[in-house]
Design a protein around this nucleic acid. Structure first.
Lengths: 130, 130
DNA sequence: CCTAAAGGTTCCAGCCACAGGAAGGTCAAG
DNA sequence: CTTGACCTTCCTGTGGCTGGAACCTTTAGG
């Protein structure tokens, strides 16, 4: 199949598929004499897998490892576990930071009932707070 | 004062201060014959304000507006309100997305008790889930 | 007076994961 | 034969910095 069919099936833009090839996340596919990329059925699987990983915000470098380790049924799960655990840690870290932001911002939003900049509590807080 | 003193006082790297100047967030300061930047006391205030905004993840383009509007005591608070409200909305949006990620990832982490890739529930989930 | 260190300057490149667009080749339908 | 859809490569931009090279200026010490 050609790239746009793969793109539609795996729900990944063709542009992104070429990008994944350029950074070594997927292998360069077969090419015909016209220079077009032609893909196999199992490439759909791989790309869906990659998409799922990206939806979990797993970095491309980590996905490379996952894809590689997936080829080797005898290998240990440790790599996979580590990557997921680390990703979870990153997400939770970000959640904590965002909770702080949310708190501060919502305080700001409710703090000010002024109409002019002169008495704007928001700006005053941003100037001096913390 | 020279840039490194400003940097220390405002807790912003000198490199970042130059960057802020290059993107038009702060005005180019006075220069002496040696080419060095020399800053005023009020530049400290401005940079602290900017740092607070960045700590709230407010985009630089929005901070430009905040800094501009701050010069004009008679102006309406509407711009400020909008920017903060929008920022809060972005943060909450991100929080929702992260909550989903966190949920999925924590399920993945606890799902697998296998030792080898062959039976790894994590990889199987990533292959077929959703 | 010379030197070395510390600090200043500009400019270029890289990060991450793409997206947009230009310029040009290929292919199937009418 | 033309049109339009698809394919190709290559370059640029995104946001907010950060690192580093190459070079100039200032300051302190021997």
């Amino acid at each position: 199949m050609k790239i746009s069919e793969l793109a539609q099936t795996a729900h990944i833009p063709a542009k992104t598929i070429r990008y994944y090839e350029s950074v070594g996340l997927i292998k360069p596919p077969q090419r015909e004499t016209n220079g077009y990329r032609y893909y196999q059925l199992r490439d759909v699987e791989t790309l869906i897998f990659i998409r799922r990983c990206r939806e979990l915000n797993i970095p491309i470098e980590d996905i490379k490892q996952l894809v590689a380790v997936k080829q080797n049924p005898e290998a240990s799960c440790a790599t996979v576990d580590n990557i997921i655990v680390e990703q979870l840690a990153r997400v939770r870290q970000l959640q904590q930071e965002l909770a702080l932001l949310e708190h501060t911002l919502s305080l700001l939003v409710t703090s000010c009932s002024s109409d002019t900049i002169q008495d704007c509590c928001i700006l005053q807080s941003l100037q001096s707070s913390k």
